[in-house]
Design a protein around this nucleic acid. Structure first.
Lengths: 252, 252
DNA sequence: CGGCAACTCTTTATGCCGTAAGGTTATCAG
DNA sequence: CTGATAACCTTACGGCATAAAGAGTTGCCG
């Protein structure tokens, strides 16, 4: 019945995300051979191993020794399964933070953790990030970021802005890095070579590139690779810019 | 749901993006009734009107009075078509910038333009942002951002970080806003009501919410809606944080 | 114990999708 | 006119999510 193009029915997903496993007291019928948890794990395993495009209900069922339709006893559909997989991945994030070294170190640690988590499961970055799923792990991660930022004593509005900017930034840079890795893995060409090939092709197709894009050209030659290249570096320096922005509004 | 994973063959996409229309001198065969441009336009029309999930080769062909297979004469496949559509959308961005009011105003204008463009074509946000397509419009947009930032005289490395952070931020906040709008449109519920319903459901499912997430709870009550709500506000204040960060590294 | 309702899981089927393969027809060069 | 070529078509294949219906299993209740 097409809730709306994108993720699963929010109500169903929320219920699955927050509703604990019920203890099954005195119900009839055969014992469940599967569980939501097992299905989510299988889904993550499939996506980790073969990528998002290989994630089908058939594939998940097969990994569990069942048919695709068996999953529908536990999960309303593929979209909701994706929501669950998303939150489960975020649950890998560590709980603690180095709060004693100041908020800047704490936020940096938070960002590094999230970045690493995304890179461990790059397919998550292909799930539409639009609607927040509001699963427990996602909210915990946000709470953790708020805890890291607390010593900065930001005004509420500014705090909201900082949270949004930080989260989107980590997600975006992780996506770029993940794809560079993916391209390298898929083509057998190293990151840098891949970019060089792309760059050469571009120079061939658009000979007036330096005239048309002087600033891009300058930046490219000034730094080394492309502006998109070397994701790690972009992550570090972008985060520094962001944190400077946060600092400039810090209350103490 | 909807994965939209791997993009098209980079070489083919690049060639289509940069290779101008050839004049067709003295070739045999019937005259082409379509063109790459017309197909891209039709694709955008379909996606704008009915969303990404309705974008199929069959639908695009139908809009042009052809079958799906007719498109393959002009375009290698759906993935490459998506690349072309993406760049065409970015070509809507205006060319000028208010450079006389300082770089801060210029970057703000750039960000607002991009934000608005994404919201006009929200389906673009579902195309995997990972690999840069490097189309002319995308590069022009980046060149424009560099022009806006030039008066800030940032060091190359820092400039790269700022560009990445700004772009990802606009994209991310636009995605959140677009989804809130989509949910509102699909369910007939206003933005705020939709969030309230979600929030109420969450409170019902997780009664210990305030204890578990004290900082989130505080932030929520301090500001009004949710941290995700009111995308416009998050965009404005997040951008302010970012620009403060850029300013703190400005050379003049 | 028998009967029934509840439950899991399978089979089958529907209607999409992208696109490979091959046929038909219009248009050109010669 | 002839033959090549290109645009477009029909058909078909293997995939997808999932609706519908049935088979088999289990526990409760009389």
């Amino acid at each position: 019945m097409t809730v709306y193009a994108g993720q699963g029915d929010p109500d169903r997903s929320l219920a699955l995300l927050w509703g604990g496993e019920e203890p099954r007291t005195g119900r009839s019928g055969p014992k469940p051979g599967l569980s939501v948890d097992a299905i989510v794990s299988a889904g993550i395993a499939v996506a980790d191993a073969e990528g998002m495009s290989a994630l089908s209900m058939r594939a998940v069922g097969e990994r569990l020794g069942r048919t695709a339709m068996a999953l529908y006893t536990y999960v309303p559909g593929k979209a909701e399964l994706l929501d669950l997989m998303h939150d489960r991945v975020l649950a890998e994030l560590p709980g603690g933070l180095p709060l004693s070294d100041g908020w800047r170190a704490a936020v940096t640690a938070w960002a590094e953790d999230l970045y690493a988590c995304y890179l461990r499961h790059p397919w998550v970055l292909q799930v539409s990030q639009a609607r927040p799923v509001l699963g427990p792990a996602e909210l915990t991660a946000m709470e953790r970021l708020l805890a890291a930022l607390q010593p900065a004593a930001l005004a509420p509005e500014r705090l909201r802005g900082a949270v949004a900017a930080l989260w989107q930034f980590v997600r975006g840079t992780a996506a770029t890095t993940a794809d560079a890795r993916g391209a390298a893995a898929a083509t057998g060409v190293a990151d840098e070579d891949w970019w060089n090939a792309r760059s050469a092709r571009l120079a061939e197709l658009a000979p007036d590139f330096p005239q048309r894009f002087p600033l891009l050209t300058a930046l490219q030659s000034a730094g080394g690779g492309a502006p998109e290249d070397s994701g790690r570096e972009a992550f570090r320096t972008g985060l520094a810019v962001l944190l400077d922005g946060v600092a400039s509004g810090a209350g103490s």
